[in-house]
Amino acid sequence: MEKGKTDLRVIRTRKAIREAFCAMIMEMDYPDITVKELTRRAMINRNTFYLHYDSIDALLRELQDEIAGEFMEKQVSYTKMSDIRRMIQVFFAYMATQSPLQDRLLCSGSYQFFYDRVNQQVMGHRKLMNRGAFGMDEASENIIFAYYGSITAILYRQWVADGKKLSLEEVTALATKLICDGMSSVVKY
């Protein structure tokens, strides 16, 4: 019975830490987030924080792993252009349903390093799972994965920066055309 109480306290404490941390991310740049302010907002002491996390970075890594994990769970193939077109649609549709917190973490300049780590994690997984999909040597495939991973995210981040003025369907169609067909598909000579 005592174990149940302890587990519930741990759950509540981790939830308080997480909520305070997420609120701080929405309000400030990452270098401005401190354990002192986090513990004040979560209404816990520093020792309690350190029982659960080694550092603020460890807490951020937890968020990174969750976000990357959600992308990596999606089984995709890269063997045909239709697979890549579908993945772009899946990416934009998924991202359009995410919280403002994810947009901040993946689109804000002060969290660029966070996006870079998520992208490396996801694209590293994609390379492992889809090695040989393009029938090219490893170095060539690495360039293709780097292009796909970075360009898709850059286009999404620009859409967010513009206040999502294009509809989801419009931005997905434009992104798909740009990524799969290149600029010559949308820019006249």
Rank of each mutant, 00 (worst) to 15 (best):
F91A: 02
F92E: 13
R9V: 10
M123H: 05
M72A: 04
E37Q: 10
K127Y: 14
I67L: 12
Y50S: 09
E66K: 05
T152M: 10
E62N: 10
M95H: 08
R85F: 07
S55M: 06
M87W: 15
A153Y: 07
L174D: 05
P100F: 08
A93F: 00
V160P: 03
R41T: 11
D54F: 06
T172L: 05
A93M: 06
G163W: 05
R40Q: 13
L105G: 03
Y53D: 01
M183R: 14
A68N: 02
K80Q: 10
N119P: 05
N47G: 13
L178G: 05
G135H: 04
E138R: 11
L105N: 01
G163Q: 04
E19Q: 14
Q89V: 13
K164S: 00
T48I: 14
T79I: 11
E66M: 01
P31A: 08
S108N: 08
Y111A: 04
G149E: 01
I56F: 01
D32I: 03
F114A: 04
R86N: 08
R14Y: 02
M24K: 06
L178E: 07
Y78L: 13
L60F: 01
V187A: 12
A68V: 02
K188W: 06
F134K: 09
Y50R: 13
L174E: 08
R41Q: 13
K188E: 06
K127M: 10
G182D: 07
E2Y: 15
S167R: 00
Y156H: 06
E169M: 11
P100H: 11
D103C: 06
A161L: 15
E19K: 15
R18W: 04
Y30A: 05
T6E: 02
R61H: 13
V10Y: 04
L174A: 15
Y50A: 07
R46E: 10
F71G: 07
K164M: 06
F134C: 09
A173I: 00
R117Y: 08
C22Q: 15
Y78C: 14
T13S: 07
M95V: 12
T176W: 03
S184C: 12
A173Y: 10
E66C: 02
A153N: 14
R9G: 03
S140W: 13
M28I: 07
G135Y: 03
A58D: 08
I151M: 12
A68D: 02
N130I: 12
Y94Q: 11
K164H: 02
R41I: 09
I154Q: 08
A153H: 12
K188S: 05
K127S: 09
K127N: 13
Y53V: 02
L60R: 01
I144Y: 15
Y50E: 08
A20L: 04
A175M: 09
S110D: 10
M43L: 11
A23T: 15
A146G: 12
H125K: 15
G4I: 12
M1Y: 11
V76Y: 00
A23K: 10
D65K: 15
I88Y: 04
I143A: 15
N142D: 14
I17A: 00
R85E: 14
S185W: 11
R131H: 11
I179P: 00
R9F: 12
